[in-house]
Amino acid sequence: MDLLTASAADLLAATDAQWEAALGVALTERLTLLRRLSGRWHPDHCIDSQAAAVFARIQRQRRRVSGGSRMLAPDRRATEARPVFESTATADGRRWTMPYLATYASELGAVYIGQRSLLEVVPLNMADLAERSVAQTSRWTFASAGMEEQIRPCLPAPATVHRTADAVLVVRPRDPALVRLADVMAHVGTVPPEHVAWIGSGLWNLACYLEYAQRAHPAIDASTVWIDTVRHRVALLGGWAYAGRIDERWAALPGNTLADVTPAWRGDPVQRSALGHIRIRRLLRALLGDATGMGPITARAPAAWVTFARSPAAGSAIDQYRSWKKVVETTFGPPRFATWDLSTSTIYPEN
């Protein structure tokens, strides 16, 4: 059976075995063929009365090919057939467009992941927060060239801004090796401890830099953190509209951070590094399989790591980084590189 020329009736009647035989052997070729089929049968532009049913069958087959257990992060929206974002008109009548691989919702609107771009779409009534995000990431200071070489790839690139009739578009370059941690967690379920180790170290390393730079970031979570699974790099690309100089008053906080704000902090609503440290420990608990801090943990999660993640965020970022490194080395010994066979195209098979 030729899938590209088959009728809707033939595609719906074909068994899974017939689909498997028609798709071929190589994974890359199979995904490419399924993408082409998705584009042809997408119900938004295919007029065939059975388009929706065929499209659903294609997506079921794609899930079989890419892994039946694959899940989307709760905030992520499914995308198919090489979608393209198109804005409303700008002041000069032009429209801003960008092909994207995946999209997810945020409290400030929506984020689109392009092959080499990251696009935030913020409604006009929150334009001040879009501008704050741009301002917070426009300039970084480093103590040395070595610090800059290590930390700069872990921070957002400067943004360009486009204002349309109904939104502010914040556009940044994106390293295609980086994937959003929320999408990784949704795909793999529980992250193996050997990879929680370097992700945790990367998070505390970023916390140390933020304290050096006198910056606070209260929105550190799986949706704002991105990772490079090949080079073991951790980047903090999102949530910068909520960040600020330490002791500066909050401009805003995301809803999921409010649970970590103590009554005393509500009475003195200023940026503090401790809130970011609490968020890191909460994220570590989630990575270890215990998002609440009280629930059961997986057998593979080292008990000392769980105790660390459940403990109060006390001390400086450097103190907590050292404590984390100590519990990791207690389990695994001296640092060593753990290969993770998890590519960007696995997380975003729409590519």
Rank of each mutant, 00 (worst) to 15 (best):
Q59C: 11
Q59R: 11
R60Y: 07
Q61W: 00
R62Y: 00
R62H: 13
R63P: 06
R64F: 03
V65F: 08
S66Q: 10
G67H: 00
G68Q: 03
R70T: 11
L72F: 12
L72T: 00
A73F: 05
D75H: 11
R77A: 00
R77K: 02
A78I: 11
E80H: 06
E80N: 03
A81K: 03
A81I: 02
P83F: 10
V84T: 15
S87T: 09
A89M: 07
T90K: 05
T90G: 12
T90I: 02
D92M: 05
G93T: 14
R94Y: 13
R94A: 08
L101P: 03
L101W: 09
A102L: 02
Y104Q: 15
Y104F: 15
A105N: 05
A105C: 00
S106P: 04
E107C: 00
L108D: 01
G109F: 01
G109E: 01
A110N: 03
V111P: 15
V111W: 04
V111K: 09
Y112H: 01
I113G: 01
G114K: 14
L118T: 13
L118W: 15
L118G: 04
L118Y: 08
E120D: 09
V121C: 12
V121R: 08
V122S: 08
V122I: 14
P123F: 12
P123H: 06
P123I: 15
M126F: 09
M126T: 08
A127W: 02
A127I: 04
D128P: 00
L129G: 06
E131I: 00
R132M: 05
S133R: 11
V134I: 12
Q136Y: 03
T137E: 11
T137R: 14
S138N: 01
W140P: 00
T141V: 15
A143F: 04
S144K: 05
A145E: 09
A145W: 04
E148Y: 00
E149M: 08
C154F: 01
P156S: 07
P156A: 03
P156R: 10
P158K: 09
A159Y: 14
A159L: 07
A159E: 07
H162R: 09
R163S: 03
R163W: 02
L169V: 12
L169G: 09
